[in-house]
Design a protein around this nucleic acid. Sequence first.
DNA 1: CAGAGCCTTCAAAAGTTTTTGAAACTTCAT
DNA 2: ATGAAGTTTCAAAAACTTTTGAAGGCTCTG
Lengths: 170, 170
Amino acid sequence: MDLTPAREAELLAADAIGDVIEHWGFRKALGRTWTVLYLAGEALPAQVLTERLSVSTGAMSMTLTELQRWGVVRKVWRPGERRDFFEAETDFWKMISKVVQERERFLAGSVRERLERARALLRQSGSTAEVRAKVERLGRLLSFAAMAESVIGGFLSSQRADFREFGDLL
Amino acid sequence: MDLTPAREAELLAADAIGDVIEHWGFRKALGRTWTVLYLAGEALPAQVLTERLSVSTGAMSMTLTELQRWGVVRKVWRPGERRDFFEAETDFWKMISKVVQERERFLAGSVRERLERARALLRQSGSTAEVRAKVERLGRLLSFAAMAESVIGGFLSSQRADFREFGDLL
DNA sequence: CAGAGCCTTCAAAAGTTTTTGAAACTTCAT
DNA sequence: ATGAAGTTTCAAAAACTTTTGAAGGCTCTG
């Protein structure tokens, strides 16, 4: 398979964004696929994507489903076309906030819940100075988790994250 | 292996923080180990950690080396003790900024470099309307990467991240 | 309503990351 | 110097994740 410089450039960019996306805990394939769609500037059928990125139809189907689940790619209907076309969301802020909302929030909540459970358990286990000190440290971790949740909430509504409000914790 | 409630609580908390840390792209083991040290409130020898977390000495050695590389755990010398003791960094802000500094900055830079390379390649590939539109979209991606680098820099110096300055991009 | 085209699913294969455990190494005490 | 205790290294194993490709399903067209 031999590439034109334009396709090579596309793959280079797609792979760079793939790394960013992987770094945020998603599969590389998601970032690569979104990037090809974004650079195309128009909706493309799945087949073109499988060719340009050299992946199987199965993998592309899963990747597109997941991208839609995250709201960063849309399926568009083209009159007279049998197959589905896909286009990239181009609003960066929309993408960031969607992901942060669904994912970071869930994580923060689940972590808080578990830390709280741990603290309750620990409290029941006794009340020596040693245990009390541990409960206190767990409390700091919990405050930190609560802060994270609150910063995320504020970030989503104001596009601004301010850690200084919690200076005593940090 | 049967656990006291206090140990159980410790593992529950350690595992929750392990998930957070994994979410940030490190191994779970790093978060779990840091947490046990943090909750202990004092320096512990590697052996105790291998017992409490049930991992091999080899894995613990690597984990502790990495935690030290990230500056979130310190080796402390105890007079009269042959073995090394390890203690957790407890300053959350120090930890966050160290990680952001070393890691996010590197990623942002490397991504920018690759996107720039892609843009140069694309430019050389012709100058049709289609190519020019693609170069323009790649430019937006690049501006976004530049913004990310700048927000990270600002965040590190002021503990505050403001996305609104770049409202036109977002 | 049969066939073509497209999409999805999923079990197995490939690839990647993490952990183990044993050997080599270092350090200290005698 | 020797041996005991502790630590590091690293190849192999285990665990986990991602991709493939073939089978089955759906939907449009003639």
